[in-house]
Nucleic acid binder design. Structure first.
Lengths: 378, 378
DNA sequence: CCGCACACTGTAAACGTTTACGGCGAGCGA
DNA sequence: TCGCTCGCCGTAAACGTTTACAGTGTGCGG
């Protein structure tokens, strides 16, 4: 037990050759006589030799590892992003080092530590400060950011939060005629969220409505959603629709409203963001915005991979498209059996008022549907 | 960019000392004169020196890394387990190497590869074959299994699937009087699921009912839940209750039944497993079983850590308790506002028929509530 | 028969640490 | 003054690879 595995030397001794030869055979190089190769292979097999990652990494100066930094590990969104990232990483023969900074005060140290055990880093949204990111980049650590605005000189992958929120809220205002809405979510430290808020505000301006002064602040979990629902119910003037920063908030909102006897969407409409796994199965089925979380992870990994490959820093930016998924919680008629909004007539709900069925369901090929908006190689 | 950072040698040159001294200063060891230390520290700072993980790892023969292998990365359950694992890992100063074998055919190779870049491995349920696990253990790789039955000589952490399923189904049969039930889930390759099925069957036998011959096979996702629901509705004799293998299946089931005009729980009762984040907010709120997923991850990490520490193999087994969470989908009256099942009288629903409120809600301290059943240190 | 190309293999120097060991002063007791 | 201890620091040998370079032997053309 705990055997420290045989080394090149032991194999070499047993096969009666030098370590260089064993190394070559182990890596499957040419210019080895069939006979020698046989002997070495046999020795490798008998001793159960496996090349040491330590030795290899030291001389190649490569960890063979990609690092990814998240604010937290929970929630379907992060899971999906990580999954996409992981797929690309293993496809490239890299391992995945993961770090959730959660509420740890020493997050910066953790990230620093990760930086010198990975060949490159991907960092999510509002995880660590811009200064740290810049410092790492300056130190020569390949680093790419995701789910946040671009940082000068640092490759970035993100999702378009503004346009589809604008479209969604316009749908609520123009098509459904709702005139008083609330936005619930926490703007601070969540770059994605401020863009959503911006879209929310703009939709009001477009319709010559005055938006609320500020969002109803809330963390992005169900429990916070129920808190928010309680506050909404306490409002002097109840909103006609509540635009939630993500699906979890919307879910908490939905169930709390229902429990309070408020009919959704008849009295208050509710929307989410993410189109997570449960959105479709909520009651009523949740109108939300689908974002290509997995593709985001994949794009980030790919960018990081080429960044590492080149050694030099590159200018690279990817923006993936998102789209409103119209179900029932906004007030549209929706048939859960088919997954289609049931309405006839015009195809553009944002202008003329009729829901469009192309927008309805994110299918399994959703990732490929999200077009890459901008991509400037360095 | 891409600078290969300064080494001990460069710092030593600059400070006019030997590399040994720099190494000692860098690690904060004693027996260094204040003056020398100052010079070295200055040099370190000026050159922006950071010790190379490569060199360190090579001589210490330690990666400083824990590996964790999963069948997949998605779903709240896995996310929670990983999170627990990660918390313990970073607390011990270890990084987390993660691998989702998904559907990859070369999973074994991947795991092998991970084995020699981590100081120890944790592998989840039905991810890789028993033989591979044994082989790794024999090779001296610290390895612990989780969410599966114990393997001889290999530390294991799991959750009690049998008892609480038995309790839950007994509740359905004895308290609610349901006499015809179905179980939906996939037994194959999911060690946890077979235990749940076993509890399901036993509850029937205890009540002198004949259980169905086999589970309604289904993957553990919402989409599979809707498929299963469709099959349930097609059954010649509809069940009075459907026990689902996890919350996702139950969710798909719930929404599909509702969409088909079947009233839950009045016509068909539904239960889940996991008590995931959405269970409480489903319509109707889902009766399910709470398992301490995060604690499972933590326990596994801790076990792995001591296994690595000792070097020798240890005998260790942890079984965490689970508990039925009675909400409304089983037919109990439930007040979503308070989170309490509304019923009076007896405190044990499984024997006498009255729901018990202690069982009702898993709160944020849930993890600590789950007692460690067995723990035999080696 | 000589020399050269070529296929194969060995030698040794990296890669960047940690650490056992030894050297060198200074201080101090005898 | 001698010698011992002790604090400080340097030397050098690991750790397990990869790889430039040098060697060996064989075949073959001239």
């Amino acid at each position: 037990m705990g055997a420290k595995g045989p080394t090149l030397h032991q194999v070499a001794d047993r096969a009666g050759v030098s370590i260089a030869t064993v190394s070559r055979v182990a890596r499957g190089l040419d210019h080895i006589s069939a006979e020698t190769r046989g002997r070495v292979l046999a020795a490798i097999d008998e001793l159960n030799y496996r090349p040491s990652h330590f030795g290899r990494a030291l001389v190649k100066r490569r960890h063979g590892t990609l690092g990814i930094v998240f604010p937290g590990l929970r929630g379907p969104y992060y899971a999906e992003v990580i999954h996409g990232f992981e797929v690309e990483a293993v496809a490239a023969g890299m391992s995945l080092l993961i770090l959730g900074t959660e509420l740890l005060p020493n997050a910066d140290t953790q990230v620093l530590g990760m930086a010198d055990r990975a060949d490159g880093l991907a960092v999510m949204g509002g995880t660590i400060g811009d200064d740290l990111i810049q410092r790492l980049a300056a130190r020569g650590v390949p680093i790419v950011t995701m789910a946040r605005p671009q940082l000068a000189g640092i490759p970035n992958a993100r999702v378009d939060n503004y346009a589809s929120t604008l479209a969604l809220v316009t749908h609520l205002i123009q098509y459904h005629g709702y005139d008083r809405l609330e936005f619930v979510g926490n703007i601070m430290g969540a770059p994605d969220a401020v863009e959503r808020w911006r879209g929310f505000v703009q939709a009001h301006l477009d319709a010559e409505l005055t938006p609320p002064d500020e969002p109803l602040s809330s963390a992005y979990e169900q429990a916070s959603g129920v808190q928010a629902a309680l506050r909404v119910l306490d409002l002097a003037r109840r909103p006609r629709a509540v635009v939630c920063g993500n699906d979890e908030i919307a879910t908490g909102m939905l169930s709390t409203l229902a429990a309070s006897g408020v009919r959704v969407p008849d009295e208050i409409a509710v929307t989410g963001w993410d189109d997570g796994p449960f959105a479709r199965y909520a009651t009523p089925p949740l109108t939300t915005v689908s974002q290509p979380a997995r593709a985001l992870g994949q794009q980030t990994a790919r960018t990081l991979l080429v960044l590492i490959e080149r050694g030099e820093s590159i200018e690279h930016e990817v923006v993936l498209t998102t789209e409103p998924i119209i179900r029932a919680s906004c007030g549209c008629p929706f048939d859960p059996a088919t997954g289609f909004t049931m309405a006839n007539g015009d195809r553009n709900p944002f202008k003329e008022g009729a829901p469009i069925d192309e927008l309805i369901e994110a299918d399994s090929t959703a990732n490929t549907r999200h077009r890459e908006i901008a991509l400037t190689g360095g």
